[in-house]
Design a protein around this nucleic acid. Structure first.
Lengths: 237, 237
DNA sequence: TCAACCCTCATTATATGATAAATGTTAAAC
DNA sequence: GTTTAACATTTATCATATAATGAGGGTTGA
């Protein structure tokens, strides 16, 4: 019954995720307007050539992220953009896949500028012993990669460094940023995210301040790093 | 087959949400340890007295929020805390229901201090004409309520004001904060969130700066408001 | 004329059972 | 000891049936 074409197009994930992704694409791209009622389950099952089970699980996934809302008799409505949880890594992944990433990148940078300096400050105060060890190890890798430069490896350690900062804040609300940041970094592979190469000096300043427990200096250093972050966009994808 | 006791306990929502909520409670409270495999579908169906359909939809909901991950043969595993999306309003609602909100409130305030001044600055720059009209109407209500004080109404307009600021940033990544903020405000009903009553002066400063398009002043004013925000906790719940 | 009530029916919600796919485990083969 | 293959368990998917919901139309009565 299931059309293998979709399986090929939607890569290797489970069926309901593939369906969810396709519906999400239609919503995010505006093909399905906000507040619009999407076709009934029966119709969608036929469109995607999947069972109601798979389709409904897809809809539940999207409902959880604020894209849809279902009611008996009424149908399933596309929620307004205000309700879309852009701080969900999976949803962000779908957004990125639409292309059109110039704006997304710029908006994300604006968010980083607000959140990351404070995250660094919190990490300086709250990082656990184990987190400091991880941060230490990661910075040493950064240092090494900056001297033996490799764009891919730099992206990886750079991402890991900033991820660890978020995880070290000791604040639950900062945790999701770690995943969102990773999604963002991965999507911009082969695109050096900082001006003038590796910015190892700025990173060292952040690292040192955190290890020294100096919140103000950590905040300042991270703000400086982001000031130097360029706005160039990836050429590919 | 379905045990009506659960329906009573879990209020009026759909069954799979009730089940999801209950599983979430076990995860968030630590009753189900991180990285632990939860019982198989069959067992959980019996435990909750629901069909596999309902149970699986519940699991999909939790998977979407980063709490679970399923694999054939392996089972369904509780993901580590790093993956929980605390910036999801529904999940936050469940967290709040655990009680233990002193820490949640404090952590949220730390987030607001990082994000809200910048949101106000962005709103000053980017708010659309329609958003300025809404903001204006809301502030006038605030002004009225501050003069004819009513705690519940103040909470409502206060929430709406800050919500509008997030929606007016013109930045997709700031939108989710609006919902999270609302969830937070609603949970702390009957608990005046600002010191010395209504803080109408500080709010006026934010409002005026945004309407004037003065980003720096808006940021400053919002930071001042949050500095004056107290850390008292709700006495109830 | 209109408001209150009831019935209809399309749609989602839930249940059930069957089959497929995936994958860790175990045992067999070399 | 290592590799390979069969097995068993669990989730994934499909198919179908029944229940609950509530918007909209129709009816009734004043």
């Amino acid at each position: 019954m299931h059309n293998p074409f979709i399986q090929i197009a939607g890569s290797k994930r489970s069926l309901h995720v593939q369906v969810a992704r396709e519906i999400a694409r239609k919503i995010l791209s505006g093909e399905a307007a906000q507040n619009e009622i999407i076709p009934s389950e029966m119709v969608l099952c036929q469109q995607f050539s999947v069972s109601r089970t798979a389709l409904r699980e897809a809809i539940k996934l999207l409902t959880s992220k604020g894209l849809l809302e279902s009611k008996p008799k009424v149908g399933t409505r596309v929620k307004s953009r205000d309700n879309w949880n852009f701080l969900d890594a999976q949803l962000l992944d779908w957004v990125i896949d639409l292309g059109d990433n110039a704006i997304v990148y710029q908006e994300f940078l604006a968010l980083r500028k607000a959140i990351e300096p404070e995250a660094a400050a919190l990490a300086a105060k709250n990082a656990t012993a184990q987190q400091r060890i991880l941060l230490s190890a990661t910075f040493q890798q950064m240092d090494y990669v900056s001297k033996n430069f490799d764009a891919d490896k730099w992206m990886e350690v750079d991402m890991e460094f900033h991820r660890l900062v978020f995880l070290s804040t000791g604040n639950s609300f900062y945790l999701p940023f770690a995943n969102v940041l990773c999604t963002m970094f991965k999507s911009f592979i082969s695109h050096s995210s900082e001006k003038g190469g590796t910015c190892i000096g700025e990173h060292r300043a952040i690292y040192s301040a955190i290890m020294a427990g100096d919140a103000d200096k950590a905040r300042e250093a991270n703000a400086t790093l982001l000031k130097n972050t360029n706005h160039r966009l990836p050429t590919s994808n």
